[in-house]
């Protein structure tokens, strides 16, 4: 079978951070970590080409992923391997996006990276195999990757036991029993004491430790934050309407209100008619100022923080949360009211 390997500029031997802007290129056969992969896969399979790209270029240049994918596609691979990317964020994202794009076109692809790599969330329907955290763990990481690739090439499945991480796509299948009979089976199982039986796994969420309560509100600086996408009317910083990759801050130090016409919501997930009629429906500055003047709160933070919560990836949302908390701590705010849409 024909295999194409995708790696970054560092593992291709082009250079380190100084070469992160290198555009995509292809080389015959296996390069760097691909050599060990080729050896482990044996004579039945061949790493026919290696495609590499600088991490900055791959993750920020417009059209870079398409370019990489077309170089790979030209090799007519039976399967594509990307990484391992370890905990390197940009490399992981590049591997994930390349693999996701290929799988969406019907080309099987496997990416390898560490569980914590943000790329895990972006691999679409591609298989992601666990790697170590750092390049020092290349050996065992390649061993695991090669084993998973061999299984896939043999038409077998790759599961948790094989080091699979990330999302596993759910596909429609026809089964013997109609849903109604399965529902009655399930209700009888529940009555029989089985609390775990289900056809749809419940979503798992990170445990959140609640912050300690505020003791004296009249001495506390309070911040207003929102994922309701309220921005100045011109949207000067180009906040996205969906799938946010960033958050923004706007000064409200010298304002008592957010008039219609000066602010609007660019949220793409609901009708913004009401928000635009009165932006306080998203960021309640008018009332917050009143509470500040009355001395109910010690003060109102000089800025409100904003992003858009609409199809935002969990990884990005987690990052925004961490950054917001750090930012507010630095600025002295000790409580935040998050208006959620």
């Amino acid at each position: 079978m024909r295999i194409v390997h995708y790696i970054n500029q560092f593992f291709a031997g082009v250079g380190g951070e100084d070469a992160a802007g290198t555009p995509p290129s292809r080389t015959d056969g296996a390069v760097g970590p691909g050599r060990r992969l080729a050896t482990l896969l044996g004579d039945d399979h061949e790493v026919v080409a290696t495609v590499s790209c600088g991490d900055d270029h791959a993750t920020s240049a417009a059209g870079a992923i398409d370019e990489i994918v077309s170089l790979i596609r030209a090799e007519q691979p039976d399967l594509v391997v990307a990484g391992p990317a370890f905990t390197s964020g940009r490399y992981g994202l590049a591997c994930a996006r390349v693999a996701a794009a290929l799988v969406a076109e019907g080309v099987p692809a496997v990416a390898a990276m560490h569980d914590e790599n943000p790329g895990v969330e972006e691999a679409g329907a591609a298989v992601v195999v666990r790697s170590g955290a750092v390049a020092r763990e290349m050996g065992p990481s390649i061993d695991r990757l090669a084993a998973a690739v061999a299984r896939l090439l043999a038409g077998e499945t790759v599961g948790e036991a094989d080091g699979r991480i990330g999302k596993v796509p759910r596909r429609n299948v026809l089964v013997e029993k109609p849903a109604a009979e399965r529902a009655v089976d399930l209700v009888l199982a529940r009555l029989g004491g089985d609390r775990s039986a289900t056809e749809v796994p419940l979503p798992r969420f990170d445990p959140v430790t609640p912050a300690a309560p505020v003791d004296d509100l009249s001495k506390t600086m309070v911040a207003l934050v929102t994922e309701g996408a309220l921005v100045p009317d011109e949207n000067p910083d180009r906040l996205e309407s969906a799938r946010a990759t960033k958050w923004l801050r706007y000064r409200i130090q010298d304002r008592d209100s957010l008039p219609a016409g000066e602010f609007r919501s660019v949220h793409g997930g609901f009708s913004t008619v009401w928000a635009n009629e009165d932006p306080h429906r998203i960021v309640p500055l008018d009332v917050a100022r009143e509470l500040e003047r009355e001395g109910l709160i010690g003060g109102l933070h000089d800025e409100y923080l904003v992003t858009v919560g609409n199809g935002t990836s969990v990884a990005d949302a987690r990052r925004f949360g961490v950054e917001w908390a750090a930012d507010l701590r630095r600025s002295g705010a000790r409580a935040a009211i998050l208006t959620a849409t």
Partner: peptide, 23 residues
């Protein structure tokens, strides 16, 4: 999409479709 096929995801449980992880 499956969503356009009449009663294909029947909430009353008529159908034999379900989802499985494509491991």
């Amino acid at each position: 999409p499956m969503a356009a096929v009449y009663c294909s995801l029947s909430p009353l449980g008529w159908g034999r479709s379900t989802c499985r992880e494509a491991a």
